[in-house]
Design a binder for these strands. Structure first.
Lengths: 338, 338
DNA sequence: TTGTATGCGTTATCAT
DNA sequence: ATGATAACGCATACAA
């Protein structure tokens, strides 16, 4: 391990001069800086992050906290898309990422503790249940945080535009002639609230009456609960002609249930998903869905988190809305040509 | 931040005693240890990883290096499955994970440099192209490494049993009456070599002759190239009755091509995938495939990597083979009842 | 503009 | 069994 001391010896400047030069300090003469940087490069110098971190209390490390209730981990395509994009942007900005979780070894610790333990300069939080006290503790701590899809006071939020998403879907379905639209929603989170609001707003605007029994609760990313909800909807005396699902993945549960009823999509029943995961585009019929821009979500999250770290004194929390895109597939029957 | 010093003051023992007690050193009396650990807990002490790492040259941090040529990142379900399982086991053993990559900020560094920079105690490597010199450099360095699906001398390898996988698929296809089996394979890696070997061995054993034009090269996780290969196969004067794909994901390219030819799976053409990703099970017809045990792969990788770190002196590199499982779907037509 | 000295929090060596 | 002290590599306050 070549250290600042080694460089210092090699080129005859003191360690502090070397240190300053390597940090592009303006105190040091240009020529000196050049020499020092050159020898550092030649010697293959790498800063010792531990020493630097000990001294500066910064780690160039960003924490990533994500938990979904289904424990899908990285196989949750929406989250993994966001995280991957977050990682790319974080690395571009000079940060590594560390996953934050409860238990490390036999140490039980809170998310906050883990973040402190790893000296994360900031943490991005994406999860379904933002009411978890451990999550709240972290958000209200002195550690800069950015949330995905949830608004906290004094914390920047990167938000997928769920209101518009739900609206756009309803409008699309309406344009195809449907008037009996059911909505299976996920856990009662702010995401769900906004989607429900978008759904009802659009229905109101279009003059569609939605019977209470057309609104069913299920869970995100859980085909089973969406399957059950689907069954209830199909068994209704006056069933809907189109079902909106919590997400593309959950729709699979509905799909199986629809198959069991010997119904065909979209001829007997229309459906739409949400997310625009890869799967949605290779199913037959292709699923109509609302594509969330995971790439932009992750990138913005990293950019704002880093900004809030660097400009800690002046940074003001923001809410960044990320637009999505309606993807029209073949899962909604066009009733206009009947 | 509560430090050892704070604990030392509070309970009247020296910092070194406290340090030893917290590390369960046998030098310290049981009673003393108990007192110290209790106050540490009360005060909410968390070790400072930077200081510890600076002193011990260990970080309790494992590097994860994964690169696929298609840049799919975490959306590559096979890798993300392995990594997620790796992460879970690593955390259980007291390690955090850090992603290793080339550029961090404006620093260009090799994978090895990055691993050193982050003081990784060990690195797990999963990628398509193990011939990359930067990967080889890391593997041959003093940093303990474990590879996934590739064997290097003096480096533990966790290997999915691709030979058996290909064999099992061929046998299944054969049992369903097929004799004209084509194989679209991925890049020329050791994984591909083993699958090809398994394919040919099985065909030989079953007395199947495989014309050269039934073997097509494509790329893993790349629907486009598999689509092209599929087209070539379908346009053959004597086309195969069953096509084996590099992986489930790539199969989608073949599926589209088959659709374009107005052929139906499995009535006109049978297919099998590889991997057993979620997608394969919700396609209609359900894809017959070989499920790789990503969970076991990740877990074993973490366990062996940690073992090689802890028992650095005595550890001997191993090769761990992980069995998979044939998943029979509906994508291979049973010709026996024709 | 450059150099000297100090301390971040921890562990390890050595002495008691 | 416990304590004093040094050192890990770096950044910085201060001196020159």
């Amino acid at each position: 391990m070549v250290t600042i001391k080694d460089i210092s010896k090699r080129c005859g400047f003191s360690t502090s001069t070397v240190s300053k030069a390597l940090n592009n300090s303006l105190e040091i003469g240009q020529e000196t800086t050049a020499i020092i940087r050159k020898t550092a490069l030649e010697m293959g110098y790498l800063p010792n992050t531990a020493a630097r971190s000990l001294k500066t209390n910064r780690s160039n490390n960003l924490g990533v906290l994500f938990i979904d209730e289904m424990q899908s981990g990285l196989s949750h395509e929406y989250f993994s898309g966001v995280i991957n994009s977050f990682k790319v942007e974080a690395e571009r900005l000079g940060y590594d990422i560390t996953f934050i979780s409860h238990n490390i070894g036999n140490m039980q610790m809170s998310y906050y503790d883990h973040s402190v333990y790893r000296k994360c300069d900031g943490v991005v939080i994406a999860c379904v249940d933002f009411s978890d006290p451990a999550v709240v503790e972290l958000i209200h701590s002195e550690i800069p945080t950015v949330t995905i899809d949830h608004i906290f006071n004094d914390c920047t939020a990167i938000l997928s535009d769920n209101l518009t998403g739900a609206k756009d879907l309803v409008h699309h379905i309406y344009e195809y002639g449907h008037r009996k639209i059911a909505f299976i929603h996920g856990e009662n989170t702010s995401v769900t609230k906004r989607r429900l609001a978008g759904f009802h707003k659009a229905c109101d605007a279009l003059g569609i009456k939605v019977p209470d029994e057309y609104i069913k609760a299920a869970r995100y990313h859980d085909p089973r609960s969406s399957g059950l909800a689907t069954r209830e909807l199909l068994n209704l005396p006056d069933p809907p002609t189109c079902i909106m699902y919590p997400d593309d993945f959950s729709f699979i549960g509905g799909m199986n249930e629809i198959e069991k009823h010997s119904l065909t999509i979209p001829d007997d029943i229309s459906v739409v998903g949400y997310d625009g995961i890869y799967l949605s585009q290779v199913l037959r019929p292709k699923l109509s869905t609302f594509k969330q821009n995971t790439e932009a979500l992750g990138k913005e999250a990293a950019a704002h988190l880093v900004e809030s770290i660097v400009d800690k004194k002046t940074y003001l929390p923001k809410q960044i809305w990320i637009a999505g895109e309606l993807w029209i597939g073949d899962s909604v029957k066009n009733l206009n040509f009947e």
